[in-house]
Amino acid sequence: MKADTNDKALIIGVQQRDQKALYALYEKYSGALYGVIIRMCKDSGLAEELLQESFLKIWNKIDQYHPDKGRFYTWAYRIARNTTLNAMRKESLLIQSEDLSVYKDRKEEEEPWDVQRLNGQINSLEPHHRQAISLVYFQGFTHREAHEEMGVPLGTFKSYIRQALKQLREGYKITGCALLFMNHWLGL
């Protein structure tokens, strides 16, 4: 990832219509958002359009972002997620009037790689915890849809999410400590 930039200054810049500030936010967050969008829609062409659309919305709606209510990434993620879900709903309506087998063939040809492959700390989770997190955070499922997808009661599913987040927290804490130790040991 690129070097950390001061989000607050960049957001003020975007609010003042500074295009460079937007491009800096794009440099910092486009990969994370693109990772979410493409895992949700499973179509790289559509994902590219949706990423651009999401950043245009960020540019046009930046005044609606309030830093005291949460991090910039969380706000941008919601925009990207809603934009993608809306596009998928529209595409789903179109597919209903087309030959579904042709559509599936086309998608398989376009996306030969596994977009569902996850990286980082999430891979240290137990499979059912990993799946729960993946469904909700990377595939755009609501809790209700996700528990049906996994075939477990809603309460159990919520419990999976809580346990998964707790384990992730532990994992990031350890990684953070390890990085701190290494930096200290390397004299950085």
């Binding site: 895992r39 949460g70 700390q121 955070y137």
Partner: peptide, 28 residues
């Protein structure tokens, strides 16, 4: 939770093609 969520997203970032940034620039 937000910080972890963001870290998880960064871990799973996928570099988008360069032309998207150019298209965004043109659109703006």
């Amino acid at each position: 939770l937000e910080a972890d969520f963001e870290k998880m997203a960064m871990d799973n970032a996928i570099e988008p093609p360069a032309h998207i940034r150019e298209n965004l620039k043109k659109a703006i």
